[in-house]
Design a protein around this nucleic acid. Sequence first.
RNA 1: GCGGGCGUCGCCACGUGGUUAAGGCAGCGGCUUGUGGCGCCGCCAUUCGGGGGUUCGAGUCCCCUCGCUCGCCCCA
Length: 424
Amino acid sequence: MEKLQSLRGMVDLLPAHTSLWQRVEATARDHFRRAGVQEIRTPLLEVTELFARGIGEATDVVGKEMYTFVDRGDRSCTLRPEGTASVVRAVIQHGLLSQGSQRLWYGGPMFRYERPQAGRQRQFHQIGLEFLGFADARSDVEAISIAWDLLADLGVQGLALELNTLGSTDDRARYREQLVAYLQRHKDQLDPDSQDRLERNPLRILDSKNPDTQALLADAPTLAEALAPESRDRFEQVKAGLTALDIPFTLNPRLVRGLDYYSHTAFEITSTQLGAQATVCGGGRYDGLVEQLGGASTPAIGWALGMERLVLLLEQVAGEAAVGPAPDVYLVNRGEAAEPAALTLARNLRRAGLSVELDSSGAAFGKQFKRADRSGAAWAAVLGDGEVEQGVVRLKPLRGNGEEQELPLADVDAQKACLVAIAF
RNA sequence: GCGGGCGUCGCCACGUGGUUAAGGCAGCGGCUUGUGGCGCCGCCAUUCGGGGGUUCGAGUCCCCUCGCUCGCCCCA
């Protein structure tokens, strides 16, 4: 029989790794809370048109990476490839902006039909932040600083913040014409990918890794030169703001980003330890998106952080151990009277706040102690028919030295005091 | 979508055409049916991702396929 297994690019998160994920999630929640950012949850499935219009028809994400299908009602549906479009849709749909600007975060799985690779899966997880209704350069700085501080707090080492500006929509359109005009004259020197993009998405050519193309670009008009004075000014404010917060950055004029909706500030936080997929967090300003999706013209900025990539870094850089937590107490029990009594004792200790692993095998004491030892518990609580008859439970320390204690079975407070005293 | 590498037990891993598929870890049982960690003994792949082919004979060679992996592309 064929072995059943997960779909390509869809990975299980096993118990040995979930605690690290929980730590990341808890830390992120805490940072958002302190920054006055509220959570929003949107469906994983949306009408295809949302992404086609929001992200851009010409992008790779929309063009060839979406999980799209027709449902039973003949609607074209798509598993979300990113979070921003859905958040913006929800904000418009529920009129949240009429209540004022929105500071939102989200988290969860995203889906992109790509060839799996280090740091790249078909179902992957992002945590993202969206500020809607904020135009000032300070909001760019604040958004970036939240990401930066979160990563720092988690203990990720060796990150670099790369920064660029794409200018206003007008700047971009103007520059696009200049760039296309220049590249048309040298079209034969472009690599095939870039030739293809010349029509569809010319700005992305800037990001090409092809050395010949890069050589050609050295003499091309630059985006920086095409910026209107106000755009240039705005970028200076962002840079000054980051500098004032001691957040180091490097300027990367080739940083274009793939999604159509970005304008002005674009940034990525990268690591050299991730192989080809170096971006841990990416984002930027998207002043035109809300309007493009049918809302009132609203300035906005946001970012998304790749959970798998972040966890990869935490596991290798910080040497995070991938082990499950040991219980405080392993409850060894055997006997007709002891077994039901053990169930009660386990519940009482758990109610008192301790973590208890209850052995329900009915195996010999020796076997149970062996398992108790391997569980990593600091204590074994021992309950046999003899103990039950005397109304006591024995507490035996499994780590370090210490005497076995005998305490009244009914006195959970005394048990807890004893357990907490030595081992914690 | 395009290249390269790989695919032997839950994990790690010998094996390079002859056959009884090493070993280690983990797991299970026993020595020890009321006390673990050490030790000793035993069990744990009719099978080498799947299918086809070459051969007297294939885990070992060839083809196809699936998967993993690294890179291109793309992006978180």
